[in-house]
Write a protein that binds this DNA or RNA. Structure first.
Lengths: 118, 118
DNA sequence: TTGACATATGTCTATATGAGTATACGATTC
DNA sequence: GAATCGTATACTCATATAGACATATGTCAA
């Protein structure tokens, strides 16, 4: 089997840095394709293709206005990523240091109790 | 150009659901490969290959003990993902509703002031 | 209606993938 | 040292990609 399609889910869609850039620009508000082309310095067909992927996973929505297509962000599909990754925050954040210390203490105490019962 | 290698960064490495599963198991503590094979129900060579990718982006580390290799989690490389995605949290979280309301109010007031100066 | 503009799609190429299967390799045990 | 265990690697396959380029489609203006 090959790698999962980029359109499988937000995880795959967002693995491509250019697509993250597009979302970052759209976070400031609705934009026509050519604005994105200009801001990102990418070829227009490439931007259109990235937008297609983002559309397919629901990360952007389009609105037609004259000959322009206005794209806007929809962050909802990013929630699963956030939900998953936030469980690992303790790996780097000092915010959890105190909690970790408490847990270690509890564990130690528990083991002491166990050995008392042997 | 082809899609960026899975070993390019955590974004790409973690786009594969099996690799996320592996990390989820390792979050509970150090594990030998065969434990992962059993818990995930995957073929052993497949697990080894996924572990290799995770190693290359620094998400896991290995320790040899006899004929076993004990893998453990290192969440640090996930921080960029968390940092990026958390900026989009307002897209789905109600926690930001109040803030958004305040911002909208400010904006309205600002526009009122502007029109007074015309 | 002709042309310019905004965007999407098709084709091509190089490349890498996940999974399956077989096998290699080092450590241990007999 | 032979057999076994735990793990990694090699090879194969089908498939999808990002990007470059050319072109199609639709909309507006002169």
């Amino acid at each position: 089997m090959a790698r999962a399609a980029t359109t499988t889910d937000a995880f795959n869609a967002v693995a491509e840095p250019r697509r993250r850039q597009i979302l970052d620009v759209l976070a400031a508000g609705e934009r026509p394709v050519n604005d994105l082309v200009a801001q990102l310095g990418l070829a227009q067909p490439l931007v259109s293709k990235h937008l297609r992927v983002l559309r397919q996973v629901g990360l952007v929505e389009v609105r037609e206005e004259g000959r322009q297509r206005l794209y806007r962000l929809n962050g909802h599909p990013l929630k699963p990523i956030h939900d998953w990754v936030k469980n690992y925050e303790r790996s780097w954040s000092q915010r959890f240091d105190r909690l970790d210390a408490v847990l270690a203490e509890l564990k130690e105490k528990e083991q002491a109790d166990e050995s008392r019962n042997e």
